[in-house]
Each structure stands twice: as structure tokens, then as C-alpha cells.
Amino acid sequence: MSGVLHGVFPVLPTIFDAAGEVDTRSTLDVLEFTLDAGVDGVVFPGLASEYDHLTLDERLGLIKAIGSVARGRTTLIVGAGSISTDETVSLARAGIAAGASAAMVMTPHRLDGDLQGLVDFYTTLAEAAPLDILLQNAPRPMGLGLDVEALVDILRKAPAVTHLKEETVPCGPRISQLLTLAPGLAGVFGGAGGRHIIDELTRGAVGTMPASELADTHVALVAAFHAGDISAARGYYERMMPILMMQSVYRWRLTKAVLAMRGVIRSEFTRAPGPSLDLHDREELRAWLARLGHVAREPQVASTVG
């Protein structure tokens, strides 16, 4: 086991150019933005990366590129969730080559209702690609939204699963139960866009894995919390919340709109379907960014084609 992972681990988005092709350079610009923010590590690819709208070759190429920049500078968790075990193994092995410390793996839909099959899947993965495994328990329809009893059973029978990312609501009570019922668990991360971060931290979560657009604020919040300044942590949370609520609706488009407003990226192209921000949404977003102390800029290119 490589040790306990902890802190702020944003999930990097995949940046596309205006034609919808992967823009590796701009994706690495987002990585640099998170490194400048002082994050403890990064995750790629995940739900916030539009991973299910990337080809396997695109994912493998981006993992290699991100690893080449992250190596020696921060901790990388490779997202290895996929439609088949073979692809998951390929992604985890690519993570090993890129210097990843762990693999984040969603519970596969093909094993829905098959608890022993899930145990066998994580055990087989660990044997084929020796990395610590972070089980991502996302709610349906993204994941399986396993109950605590099922998660504890997997943890007991598949020791390669050392960490959990708990995103099935109510996240807080589930984190408390997991930490009580699975004492060998190295740590639980919160997710769900950071919308429950204070509750998660106060219940013993070791960190958070939100999207990347407010990485600096997440770092400041977690630092304040661990310094014992809960009031300051709550203040950051309150100022972030309107943006996090918008993010729960607009998902990838909100992340990319903020990154463009902050001058990190140019193209906001997304492959994943979903609603687009209108002019009123953008004005509201600029106002809330200003409350966080971020000056929103007009992006040079604002392609939001999905």
C-alpha cells in the first residue's frame, strides 16, 4: 500500500478545441492551474473529464501527458473506470507507467447485483495492475450507488481497495458508517462536486475530489479546516455554494465557463450532452466569482457546442 491519500484532489476536465478535438496543451494548462493552487493531487480521467465521451486511445494519451507533467510535482490518481475489465486494466497500467499512486474505479454497471462479481473484479484488477484502488461509489445512473453493507463486504474481501470516494447521498452519514464499520479503510473522500464538503470533513473524510474550477478555494477551505478555523472554512463554503449549485445543473459546461472566465482555457467545447448557460447565467456566475475574489474575464473563444 502506497499510504493514505488525503487533501484536495480535483478531477481534471478534458479540454477540446472549437472543433471538438482533444486539446492536450490546454488540458495541461488546467493541470498547471491546479498545481499553482496548491492541490495535494489530481485525478484523471473521471466523470468531470467526460471520460465516457473519450476513446480509449484519447484517455491513454492524456494519462501519459498528464503523468509527464505531474510526476515529481503532485500525486496522480488514474481514473480506470471503463465498460470492460480489459480496458480498466489497460487504463490502470497506463497510470502505473505515468507514475500514478492509485486507480479510481467506478463500480461497473455490468456487475449490478453481483456482489461477489464486484469482489472478483477488484481482486483481478489489483493482480493485473498492482495499484491501490479507490472505489468510486457514485449514485445511479453514473454508478451503482452501493449501500454501506455492500461496500463493507467488498472492503473485507478485496483488500486492494484501500480508499473510497463516497458520492451517494446522504454522503455524510454514509461516511460515518463506513469509518465505523470498516476500520481498515485508509480513507474516504467526498465528491459530489464539493457540495457537502464541510459535513464530509467534520465526519472524518480525508479529503475531497471536486471539479477543478475552484481548486484554489477548495485548498483554502481544507487548510482552514485543518488549522481549526472552522468559521473561515464555512465562509469559503458559503461563498462557493452558489457556483457549486450551478455546477450541479450545468456540470462540464459550468466548469469550463469558469475556467474560461479565469483565463485558464479558451474553448468551452463539451462532448457530453446537457444544458448550456445563457447570458443571464453567465452574468450571475461572474457576480459569484467576484464574491470569491476572482476577476472574471471575457474568454477569447467561448465555444459551448456539445
Score class of each variant (00 low, 15 high):
residue 58 E to D: 12
residue 244 L to D: 04
residue 132 D to R: 03
residue 235 G to Y: 06
residue 230 I to N: 07
residue 272 A to R: 11
residue 251 R to E: 04
residue 142 M to Y: 15
residue 176 S to K: 03
residue 129 A to G: 13
residue 149 E to P: 01
residue 131 L to V: 05
residue 235 G to L: 08
residue 217 T to A: 14
residue 137 N to S: 11
residue 144 L to F: 03
residue 39 V to H: 14
residue 41 G to R: 11
residue 221 L to F: 14
residue 126 A to T: 09
residue 177 Q to A: 07
residue 234 R to E: 07
residue 167 E to H: 02
residue 206 V to W: 07
residue 90 S to I: 06
residue 254 L to I: 00
residue 285 L to R: 01
residue 192 A to L: 09
residue 117 G to E: 13
residue 242 P to E: 15
residue 61 G to Q: 08
residue 276 S to W: 00
residue 212 S to H: 01
residue 41 G to H: 15
residue 25 R to K: 14
residue 79 G to Y: 03
residue 117 G to N: 10
residue 207 G to R: 14
residue 131 L to H: 04
residue 8 V to H: 03
residue 195 R to W: 00
residue 40 D to I: 12
residue 34 T to S: 12
residue 51 Y to R: 13
residue 176 S to R: 10
residue 123 T to C: 08
residue 227 A to K: 13
residue 91 L to M: 12
residue 144 L to Y: 01
residue 10 P to D: 05
residue 269 F to N: 01
residue 73 R to E: 06
residue 250 Y to H: 07
residue 11 V to Q: 00
residue 119 V to M: 12
residue 161 V to N: 05
residue 40 D to Y: 10
residue 200 E to L: 08
residue 85 T to C: 02
residue 251 R to T: 02
residue 293 G to H: 11
residue 84 S to C: 07
residue 1 M to I: 01
residue 114 D to E: 15
residue 62 L to M: 13
residue 230 I to Y: 11
residue 59 R to V: 05
residue 71 R to L: 10
residue 88 T to G: 04
residue 101 S to K: 06
residue 76 L to E: 01
residue 115 L to S: 14
residue 48 A to I: 03
residue 158 A to F: 09
residue 239 R to S: 15
residue 229 D to Q: 09
residue 202 T to I: 13
residue 295 V to G: 08
residue 206 V to K: 09
residue 251 R to M: 02
residue 157 K to Q: 13
residue 47 L to W: 04
residue 54 L to Q: 09
residue 26 S to L: 10
residue 45 P to G: 08
residue 129 A to R: 07
residue 171 C to A: 09
residue 82 S to W: 01
residue 125 L to I: 08
residue 69 V to Y: 05
residue 230 I to P: 04
residue 64 K to H: 13
residue 206 V to N: 08
residue 171 C to W: 00
residue 134 L to E: 09
residue 269 F to L: 09
residue 173 P to R: 07
residue 10 P to A: 06
residue 303 S to Q: 08
residue 245 M to Q: 15
residue 35 L to G: 12
residue 99 G to Q: 06
residue 5 L to T: 01
residue 144 L to A: 03
residue 280 H to S: 10
residue 274 G to T: 02
residue 284 E to G: 05
residue 202 T to C: 09
residue 287 A to R: 15
residue 136 Q to G: 04
residue 23 D to N: 10
residue 214 L to F: 13
residue 212 S to I: 03
residue 49 S to H: 13
residue 31 L to M: 15
residue 275 P to N: 03
residue 172 G to S: 13
residue 11 V to M: 08
residue 46 G to Y: 07
residue 21 E to S: 10
residue 146 L to R: 04
residue 181 L to K: 05
residue 78 V to R: 00
